[in-house]
């Protein structure tokens, strides 16, 4: 590899965890922004009719639960950042009323040759656990920083 990531010294950098409560109004605003009118995300009887004990959040709501960012303080030009890939793995759905401990870590910092030249790749992994310490989801977000 001829090029090294500008961010390689930050691999493994972990930001402090944050306890976040999943709020009903937050879920509603999130589905409204998407334009998702499914009643299970806003209405308890509809959620129960679909087999849920509580109102669930849609899967990508995980992205709205933002703990401190381990990329904070890194020299990143956000005009040159592109979200390249995203993955969510769920142990169970997220529910309104959950109190989740959410924490993010830089797991990859390397360099990729793209169509528009060399780019720095950063992968941030965010994990969430419930109050019993049981894992709820892991999210992996890959961004490319154009040079």
């Amino acid at each position: 590899m001829s090029e090294l990531s500008r961010y390689r010294e930050h691999i493994g950098r972990t930001a402090p965890p944050l306890v976040l409560e999943v709020e009903r109004g937050h879920v509603r605003r999130f589905v409204e922004a998407i334009g998702d009118t499914n009643p299970i995300y806003v209405d308890e009887p509809a959620a129960r009719a679909a087999g849920f004990e509580r109102i669930p959040a849609p899967p990508t709501f995980a992205t709205a639960l933002r703990p401190p960012d381990p990329r904070q303080g890194l020299d990143i030009d956000f005009r040159k950042v592109l979200h390249a890939e995203q993955e969510f793995v769920f142990a169970r759905p997220i529910f309104v009323g959950d109190r989740l401990t959410v924490q993010a870590k830089i797991v990859v910092a390397d360099v990729k040759a793209g169509r528009s030249g060399v780019m720095d790749r950063l992968v941030v992994e965010t994990g969430a656990c419930d109050e019993k310490g049981a894992p709820v989801y892991v999210a992996r977000s890959t961004v490319m920083v154009r040079r």
Partner: peptide, 24 residues
């Protein structure tokens, strides 16, 4: 998020989403 909306049609019918991944 639009795919979350689409998959909601499965969720209403007894499915749970275990993994969702994408390349932009």
């Amino acid at each position: 998020g639009f795919f979350g909306e689409l998959l909601g049609q499965f969720v209403e019918r007894g499915a749970e989403i275990k993994r969702l991944h994408s390349r932009f």
